[in-house]
Design a protein around this nucleic acid. Sequence first.
DNA 1: TTGAAAGCGCTAACAT
DNA 2: ATGTTAGCGCTTTCAA
Lengths: 340, 340
Amino acid sequence: MAAFTSRDVARLAGVSQSTVSYVMSGRRPISDETRKRVQAAIEQLTYQPNAGARALASQRTQVVGLVVPFGPAADTTGLLPFLETITGCARERDHDVLLVTADEGTSALTRLAGQSLCDAIVLMDIAARDSRLPVAAASRVPVILIGIPEETWGLPCVDLDFPEAARLAVAEIAAAGHDRLVALGYSAGEIARDVNYVGRFERAAVAAAAAAGIEHLAVSPMEPSPAGARAAVEQALALGGPRPALLVPSSSSVPWVLQALTERGVVPGRDVTVVGLCTDAAAETTTPPVTNVSTEPRTVSALAMQTLFRSLERDRQEPTGGVELVTPRLTRRGTTLPPP
Amino acid sequence: MAAFTSRDVARLAGVSQSTVSYVMSGRRPISDETRKRVQAAIEQLTYQPNAGARALASQRTQVVGLVVPFGPAADTTGLLPFLETITGCARERDHDVLLVTADEGTSALTRLAGQSLCDAIVLMDIAARDSRLPVAAASRVPVILIGIPEETWGLPCVDLDFPEAARLAVAEIAAAGHDRLVALGYSAGEIARDVNYVGRFERAAVAAAAAAGIEHLAVSPMEPSPAGARAAVEQALALGGPRPALLVPSSSSVPWVLQALTERGVVPGRDVTVVGLCTDAAAETTTPPVTNVSTEPRTVSALAMQTLFRSLERDRQEPTGGVELVTPRLTRRGTTLPPP
DNA sequence: TTGAAAGCGCTAACAT
DNA sequence: ATGTTAGCGCTTTCAA
């Protein structure tokens, strides 16, 4: 069964092909009478427009390219909420998502744009100095970054406000009456990859601690595994003094840190304060539920898509660019010590 | 900078447009001389063919549609290795992946095929009786299932050999000298969704236990959370006798079950045997590393893609269909009791 | 070994 | 309010 074309629809409805097109796009007024006939024909044939032909004629693919950090070195934890939200937002605007892996590097971008595979590109897992950015900035299609590099090249960026997240976490620790905190850092891989949020969070944490008059110590790197967490926790407890406060900015490590503490008989919320940077969903399922600053992947993704579609609608003329930040929230759960 | 077309390349190389096309596709002999001139022109202009035009003319999109189980009820754990392997295999064959969410239901399939958005479709998260299958079977493009429904509708299926996985797990438990095992079941959501592997695994486990002369008890459902695991573990220990053996077929629950046991002072590998069904990577990072039957998502995905491309090359005439199973492996780690 | 030319199915001027 | 028509950029016969 070969698919029907708009010509078949036109013939069946007794109108011209362009009328069928205009009925579907609504780009010019159509009498009720004809519209009904055309729509009936469309349904009768279960007509669906050919995407390739449409793209060729209209110069719009109705596809968003999504470059995700798969590949060996990638921080793949917590990626799914992003993917899910991005595809959902795309579908709402009648777009599909073409999945491309970051290990293609720069050529992913040139391919997506060069072959006219998509109308816009979402780039994730941005490094502080990301070699893809100059290519992205020169791209024929708009590109949006999820993450904030050192130099944006005029590209629009959306991300969590990591400095604010650090401030919230430090404020919580200060409010619990600690005069010192130990940050259990990111993994060696994340640090080596120069992922942008690592530095953004750390610098703000150090500054906020200084401002609050509390000491900032760090154990870094820490691998997100039970063993890595055990090693880091041992050091942290040695550094943390009699009433330790732990700040865990690496989502995937949060459960392991809690487990490592528990194993040692150190009870989070009774003997030690733990504040994690992770999604609320993840924080709710740890044992015990951890006081967290939320990372809001869904909000970040939705905002990115909104910005992207705005720039797509504005016929890509006005200068986009600029940084949009999503404000994290702190939720106190079971792992904050009461003030002394 | 508008993109160059094959006409530009042809003009620059002093050949006809068709020659450019044939140089790129290799579908007819070209003299070395002309080939070089054309390739030079292509590089000089950094020409890339327009995907829409190519699809329109050739009736091939070079895109694989991937329907993934996002959405509220989905078992999203362990999805990433599938996505990663599938996109990787696609790229190897010069294809891209269009990501579609399962919550679109049947319309995802009709849309992908109807709009000629892709040349083939990969369908994941198959229910035992899946309403999408009749639609898939009637689809204009080949569809492959990852998962095995009760009735395949002639569609090719690829999945782990869950019955064999159950047999391996039961054999391990029997070899450790247990005369009884407790299966900690799937989540209520998975059961309600009628996910195909649940029944396949359970039935085989019951049969294998009977054959081995050991008793098969079940605690089900169990939510994949610390609380759910604690509740299930409590019941399981009550049922398990003095020397309990636990079988955990739900990957996402394995770490929580181990944690719940440890919390109670019951040490896996000393007081209780635990066998989990999960990836080797996951099994290595639990505390302690758990004896596991591997789920091999990468092998399953790669096999599915291989089968898919075979059916694409064979010009979609021969009857595809049939079930391909990937054999799991059992790896003994720290959680198997020594025989008494 | 190469070229000319006819579409693929759609959109969007341009006419009426 | 609707129809006519000229492409969009490529592949692929058919001809030479």
